[in-house]
C-alpha cells in the first residue's frame, strides 16, 4: 500500500468494539425469530476477529449490527466509540460513512459505476471533494493491483477484481474497522487467498480492526480472536 492511500491508524476507541447482552429478534408476521441473543463481546483495537458458525448461527446478524446496517432489539453496543444501542437514522448513516468499511460476499458493486467511481462512492456520499476522492481511490486501486481497470464496469471484471474493488470502497473513508461477510464465498481459491491476505495486511500493517464472518479456514492463520456462534449465541 502506498503511503498516500491511508492515514495513520485512527485512535484505539475508533477501532474497538464492545457488546453486552446483544440481542436481535426479528418478527415475521406473528412469529419471532431470534437472530442473536445475549452476545457479549469485547474487541480491542487492532484485532483480526473471525466469526465462525453454521448457516443461521447468527454471524451475518452480528455483522450487520456491528456495521450499523440493522438495529439491536436489546442490549448495548459500542462500535468505533459510537453508541449503537438506540441510534437515529441520521446517526446510523453517519456511522456507516465514517466508522466502518464493509465488504460483502456478493461484492455489491453498482453496475452503472466504473471501478474508480465505485471506490469513490462512500467518499462522495460523505461530502468529500471529488478530486480528492478520485486521487485517493486511484491510489487504493493501484495498491490493490487494479490501476489498469479504473474505467471498467463491474461486468468487465473477474470475481477477484470485483472483491478488490469492494475492499477499496470499504477503505476510502479511512474507517478504523473493516467488516467482511463471507468475503471469499464467491471466489476461487487463488483469489480467495489474495483477498484474505489483503485483509490480513490491513490488520497487521495498518492496524485496522478486521472482523470476518466466514465458513472458510483460510483466514484462521491470521486470526487474533475467533468467535464461534451457534443458534445465535456465542459458543466459544
Amino acid at each position: 500500500m502506498q503511503t498516500t492511500t491511508t492515514s495513520a491508524a485512527p485512535p484505539d476507541s475508533e477501532r474497538s468494539i464492545q457488546a453486552r447482552d446483544l440481542t436481535r429478534i426479528y418478527r415475521v408476521g406473528s412469529v419471532s425469530v431470534t437472530g442473536i441473543e445475549g452476545v457479549n463481546l469485547s474487541v480491542p483495537a487492532g484485532q483480526m476477529v473471525v466469526l465462525k458458525g453454521e448457516s443461521g448461527s447468527g454471524k451475518s446478524t452480528l455483522l450487520s449490527l456491528l456495521a450499523g446496517l440493522d438495529r439491536l432489539t436489546h442490549g448495548a453496543l459500542t462500535v468505533a466509540g459510537r453508541d449503537l444501542s438506540a441510534p437515529s437514522d441520521t446517526e446510523l448513516t453517519t456511522f456507516r460513512r465514517h466508522a466502518v468499511g464493509m465488504v460483502f460476499q456478493a461484492f455489491n458493486l453498482l453496475p452503472t459505476l466504473t471501478v474508480l467511481e465505485n471506490a469513490c462512492l462512500p467518499a462522495l456520499l460523505a461530502g468529500a471533494n471529488p478530486d480528492t476522492a478520485h486521487t485517493k481511490a486511484s491510489d487504493l486501486l493501484s495498491w490493490l493491483g487494479l490501476n489498469d481497470r479504473l474505467d471498467h464496469r463491474p461486468s468487465q471484471l473477474s470475481g477477484g477484481e470485483m472483491q478488490r474493488t469492494a475492499i477499496a470502497r470499504a477503505l476510502i473513508n479511512d474507517p478504523g474497522i473493516i467488516l467482511a461477510d463471507e468475503p471469499t464465498g464467491n471466489l476461487d481459491s487463488h483469489n480467495a487467498r489474495k483477498v484474505i491476505a489483503l485483509l490480513a495486511d490491513l490488520n497487521r500493517e495498518f492496524d485496522r480492526t478486521v472482523v470476518v464472518a466466514t465458513h472458510s479456514d483460510l483466514v484462521d492463520p491470521f486470526a487474533t480472536m475467533v468467535l464461534a456462534l451457534q443458534d445465535g449465541r456465542v459458543a466459544s
Binding site: A67, L69, D89, T90, T93, T94, R96, R97, H98, M102, F104, A106, N108, L109, L110, P111, L121, P122, L125, A126, R169, N173
Partner: peptide, 16 residues
C-alpha cells in the same frame, strides 16, 4: 433494491 441497499450501507441517506 440491492444497489439501493449497498448505497445505504455505504452511507447514503434515505432522503438521497
Amino acid at each position: 433494491r440491492r444497489e439501493l441497499a449497498v448505497m445505504r450501507a455505504s452511507g447514503a441517506s434515505g432522503n438521497l
